[in-house]
């Protein structure tokens, strides 16, 4: 039953992926006047966090809410945060696309995890159906081994993987999540058999279990968000082989760890978070939302939030964001399909 539905939904989703973005960035909606409504927001702004309270998306949504209010960007209106949990955010995504079409006061926080979730959950609705507004923050990933590991550089690790994929057990977050995506992309970039490597990936529920698995020796390499392992890197218990940002960065040790790019592989992957609006809003409304988020990004309260939460600024808005959403979707979908999760 599930299969049938998916078979029907997938080609449609692909079509939309191709057609969707162009559609929205030009703004063919009949209401398109091009001019931003001066009175936006004209009612309570609803920010949906498509996950439970306390998680990354929820924190982002609540930080947005707080900063928008503190910076006085909402005119006389207010902002509310709603949580819609489930299935890597694709439940919230479906709700945004189906129930809140054409409503410019409904925003949703999203991110790389949802891009992957749409693929692995075979969700009928993908992000191309939304109106991308901006990307806000990002965190790099880190590849770590125990301090007694024989691998001291990423190159040594990938050479071992190329020679025998089964010789390295990878640990990271849930199947199809950012961590496994990075493993797949890294295997591809290193010229290893991505599918065979992905079979050696053991999914754990959350950073805590991954840490424990690396320390107990169950897995030989762990992949996670950089902040997750910073304390263990700092303590010298584990060693950071590489970070996934464009340039190297401090993974906790005090001295910068090289980036994957600097290690000789053409690969960069950021676990980014952004914000999207529902489909069907007018070009003017889109401009107004982009302006609001631009203003938010430039505001002092938001900068203070970034500093307090130690988030890396990763701002792209407007057409740049649309292009980025599209390229990420394509890249993630390709790699997940190649490693057998598509």
């Amino acid at each position: 039953m599930l299969r049938l539905r998916l078979a029907a939904a997938l080609p449609a989703a692909v079509l939309l992926l191709a057609a969707g973005c162009a559609d929205q960035s030009v703004g063919e909606s009949p209401a398109a006047s091009g001019a931003a409504p001066a009175d936006y927001p004209s009612k309570t702004l609803q920010i949906m966090a498509p996950a439970g309270a306390g998680g990354g998306w929820d924190t982002t949504a609540r930080s947005m809410q707080k900063s928008l209010q503190d910076a006085g960007l909402l005119k006389s209106q207010s902002a509310e945060v709603r949580n819609v949990t489930g299935a890597a955010g694709t439940i919230g995504l479906a709700e945004l696309v189906t129930s809140h079409q054409k409503d410019p006061h409904q925003l949703m926080v999203t991110g790389l995890v949802m891009v992957g979730g749409v693929v692995t959950n075979k969700a009928p609705v993908d992000l191309s159906k939304t109106t991308p507004i901006a990307t806000l923050t990002a965190e790099s990933e880190v590849v770590v081994v125990r301090n007694d590991s024989k691998y001291t550089t990423l190159k040594q690790l990938t050479d071992a993987v190329k020679a025998d994929p089964a010789s390295v057990k990878w640990g990271g977050g849930s199947a199809g999540g950012t961590d496994q995506i990075l493993v797949g992309l890294l295997a591809k970039a290193a010229g290893a058999d991505a599918k065979a490597v992905a079979k050696q990936y053991i999914a754990y529920s959350g950073g805590g279990e991954t840490k424990a698995a690396l320390l107990s020796g169950d897995v030989s390499v762990a992949v996670s968000g950089t902040s997750e392992f910073a304390d263990l890197v700092k303590a010298g218990t584990v060693r950071a082989l590489a970070v996934s940002s464009a340039t190297g960065g401090d993974a906790g040790a005090g001295t910068p760890a090289p980036s994957i790019k600097e290690s000789g592989f053409d690969l960069e992957l950021m676990n980014w978070r952004g914000v999207v609006a529902p489909p069907g809003i007018s070009a003017g409304e889109r401009t107004a939302i982009i302006k609001l988020v631009d203003d938010l990004h430039n505001s002092a309260p938001w900068k203070a939030e970034l500093a307090a939460k130690k988030w890396q600024d990763f701002y792209k808005s407007g057409d740049e964001a649309v292009a980025f959403y599209e390229s990420e979707s394509t890249r993630i979908k390709t790699v997940l399909t190649e490693i057998g999760l598509g």
Binding site: M1, R5, G86, A87, A203
Partner: peptide, 20 residues
């Protein structure tokens, strides 16, 4: 829900809310 190791859906009967 989704099998946590492989991401394969089990007994979700096409209901997305059951994926987790």
């Amino acid at each position: 829900g989704l099998d946590s190791l492989t991401g394969q859906a089990r007994f979700t009967f096409g209901v997305p809310e059951l994926l987790d």
